Simulated scan of single mutants.
Amino acid sequence: MDYFIALVGALLAGGINTLSGNGSAITLTILMELLGLPADVANGTNRVGVLANGIGGTYAFQKAGRFTDQPEAKKREMWRIVIISCVGACVGIYLSLIISNAAYKSFFRYLLVVMLLVLLIKPKRWLVPQENKPPLPLWITVILFFLLGIYGGFIQMGMGVFFLAVMVLAAHYEIIQANVVKVIVVTIYTVLAVAVFAWQDLIDWRIGALMALGQLVGGYLTARFAATHPKAGLYAYRLLIVVIIGAIAKAFWPF
């Protein structure tokens, strides 16, 4: 029964990761609380599912043309964001091996409260593409996405939420297109993360394979829906609010 719950949870997390973010809050809870893995092994094992999730989502978005069917200038900008974020993630992966993540988790929960307020104030900013806004200056792009990459490489949980916020509110991307870039970034740096955690023998491959199956299917189906459904942006925005509220409740419980 525990493994069945883990599979269903991974399927749900795969959909949440693809459309909004923070699905790792579900999978890490399952790995640590339900299956009893130590925190470091749970962190490593979780990356296997995240990688499978990213592969499924990337394939579905690519098949729908959500990355290739863009103006050349936009494609160059998206690849620049991908590269900068992945370089930052390499630093974050290294930090995850030498630093305790307790302080980061404490900081993370207060960031979630701020993020919820940002989501609820002027929701139109999330739902209406602001294509008339100028692109971010290169130096700001480098700083923002390098820091996001460090966070994602270090702890992963919540990376999608913060990445979407920067993409939509600062870089002025439409929310589904922002999700496309997010999925590609996470997939690329997670390849390295899985290799490093495997080298450190911090992955339970049997459980990781089970979680990967669920997240692969969940990621693919959700990306396929998001790439074609006309109201996918609205659903992504609403799901993001629900995910953040749930994460805040979990982070501050017990009060």
Rank of each mutant, 00 (worst) to 15 (best):
M211F: 13
V48C: 11
P123W: 08
N22A: 15
L37A: 03
G21N: 05
D40N: 12
L210Y: 08
N101I: 13
L221M: 09
G246W: 04
K231C: 05
D69S: 10
E131R: 11
G49P: 12
R125P: 00
L7G: 07
A251R: 07
V142E: 03
D204C: 08
C86V: 15
I30Y: 01
F4A: 14
M32T: 15
V191R: 00
A209D: 05
I248F: 04
G214L: 12
A195F: 11
G233T: 09
N43G: 09
V166W: 00
T68A: 13
A170P: 01
Y235P: 04
A251N: 12
L239G: 08
R238K: 11
N101Q: 11
S106V: 15
L221V: 13
P135G: 08
K124Y: 01
L12K: 01
R66N: 15
V185T: 10
Y173H: 10
Y151R: 08
I30H: 02
V87Y: 00
I203P: 03
L34T: 07
V118L: 09
G36M: 10
F252Q: 07
V181Y: 00
V181N: 01
H172K: 14
L11A: 06
C86G: 02
T29N: 09
L202H: 04
W253F: 14
Y220G: 07
I248N: 08
A102Q: 12
W139G: 11
V166G: 02
I241P: 02
M157F: 05
M157N: 13
T141Y: 02
A42G: 14
V183E: 04
Y59M: 15
W205M: 10
M78S: 12
L164P: 00
S100Q: 05
V181L: 05
F4N: 02
G158K: 06
H172L: 10
L37H: 02
T228V: 14
I241N: 04
G49A: 15
P123F: 06
G219D: 08
A232S: 13
L164E: 02
L19H: 04
Y110N: 04
A212T: 12
W205N: 06
G57A: 13
Q177K: 09
Y220T: 08
R206C: 04
T228E: 09
L112R: 01
A170C: 14
Q62E: 11
M167P: 02
G214D: 10
Y104I: 15
R125G: 06
Y110S: 03
I98T: 12
G214T: 13
L51Y: 05
L192D: 03
V242K: 00
K250Y: 06
A223W: 01
Y189K: 07
V243P: 00
A227H: 06
P254Y: 01
M159A: 14
V87S: 01
K75G: 09
V242R: 00
I241L: 06
V142M: 10
F4W: 13
H172F: 14
T190H: 00
I5W: 04
L51V: 13
G65R: 07
A73V: 12
G21K: 05
M115A: 12
R76T: 09
K124N: 05
G23A: 09
T228K: 11
T228P: 02
V242N: 00
L31I: 07
K182H: 05
